[in-house]
């Protein structure tokens, strides 16, 4: 176990193989929230745009989906807290350095505006407030779909922080795919053409952005391919491709095909979020992902100078 004993020096050393950083303590609520937040935020934008484009039947169904996604999100987040009854402490302040703080306020704004918008879409009431609430809900829905990527990137977890430029694209694409797929399921086929297009474009963007992340991350991206994260990633790809093909081939004719295809795309988006979540846990758990890149930086002269040795009678920077 101990990597420091023995005559040969292993390529990388650690303290009894123990983790260097703590594994996130977040429960399954969090990856599910990544999904519901994306679904809700994406659906609000889709609903508003459908209204603008004159797709009344589609909009009337997308608004309740948006409310469902954004409504269930705070419940998941509160349930994940160590002290749930203190959830209001999230609104003690607004901190731009804390994506979780920013997100809390986004959810407050998104929840209020989407509630008004969906109420109007379903009952016709609140027409006045809804004129403002609908574009506002659509606008707030966009960052609700992507800030969660910034949230996990803003940590010391190598697989997340290393992917800070790529993750938001994956989450945005997943939000579009989810919103399009859910609306495809809920809307009669002859009114669902824009939803199908959104589902297909979102699915394609999701597959492409995951592929791009794998290309760009290189070794840092290894946790996304192995163990549970790898299994989820493969499931996500299969479900997304299969669902998109089904929607594209038969979604315009068969409500059943549209529903099954939409369900598969939704499941694919869920699996993709789980893959990202698990990849973070895996990279935090194994010291090789934490120490490896840092040691490379130091040895390559690109370190930040955390360690300084005494050389020539004075303390100077130096690795070994």
């Amino acid at each position: 176990m101990s990597a420091t004993t023995g005559a040969t020096r292993p390529p990388q050393r650690s303290y009894h193989g123990n983790p260097v950083i703590k594994e996130p303590i977040w429960k399954p609520e969090i990856p599910w929230y990544f999904f519901t937040g994306g679904l809700g935020g994406g659906s609000a934008a889709l609903a508003y745009l459908a209204e603008l484009g004159g797709h009344e039947q589609l909009a009337r169904r997308a608004w309740p989906i948006a409310l469902g996604g954004i409504g269930v999100s705070p419940l998941l987040l509160i349930s994940d807290l160590g002290v749930p009854h203190r959830f209001l402490n999230m609104l003690r302040m607004f901190k731009v350095t804390s994506p979780m703080s920013v997100g809390s306020w986004l959810l407050v704004a998104g929840g209020a505006t989407t509630t008004v918008a969906a109420t109007n879409a379903l009952t016709g009431r609140l027409a006045g407030p809804a004129r403002l609430a609908k574009p506002a809900a659509a606008l707030v829905g966009l960052p609700i779909s992507t800030y969660t990527a910034a949230l996990i990137a803003q940590t010391a977890v190598p697989a997340w922080h290393g992917a800070r430029r790529e993750l938001p694209a994956i989450f945005a694409a997943g939000a579009a795919a989810s919103a399009g797929a859910a609306a495809t399921i809920a809307t009669p086929v002859r009114h669902a053409a824009p939803a199908r297009r959104v589902a297909l474009a979102g699915a394609a963007a999701e597959l492409l952005s995951v592929q791009a992340m794998e290309q760009w991350l290189g070794a840092v991206g290894e946790p996304y391919h192995v163990e549970q994260a790898g299994t989820y990633a493969r499931a996500a790809r299969a479900l997304t491709v299969g669902g998109a093909l089904l929607i594209g081939a038969a979604g315009a004719r068969s409500r059943v095909a549209a529903a099954v295809g939409g369900g598969m795309v939704l499941a694919g988006a869920v699996c993709e979020r789980w893959s990202v979540f698990k990849a973070g846990l895996q990279s935090a758990r194994d010291p090789k992902y934490v120490v490896g890149p840092q040691r490379e930086r130091v040895d390559g002269g690109r370190g930040h100078g955390a360690s300084r040795r005494a050389l020539d009678g004075r303390v100077a920077e130096g690795a070994r």
């Binding site: 420091t4 990388q12 050393r13 650690s14 303290y15 009894h16 123990n18 260097v20 950083i21 731009v96 350095t97 994506p99 966009l142 960052p143 779909s145 992507t146 800030y147 990527a149 910034a150 990137a153 803003q154 940590t155 010391a156 922080h161 800070r164 430029r165 790529e166 993750l167 938001p168 694209a169 989450f171 945005a172 010291p287 934490v290 120490v291 840092q294 040691r295 930086r297 130091v298 370190g303 930040h304 955390a306 360690s307 690795a319 070994r320």
Partner: peptide, 29 residues
């Protein structure tokens, strides 16, 4: 070396990349 004691050899505060992180999230939105 630090890692021998279980300490990270080159720790960095993730807040230093806050700008690029928010920019990526904003562009994606």
């Amino acid at each position: 070396d630090p890692e021998v004691y279980g300490l990270p050899p080159d720790p960095v505060d993730a807040t230093r990349d806050l700008g690029s992180t928010w920019a990526a999230a904003g562009v994606a939105a």
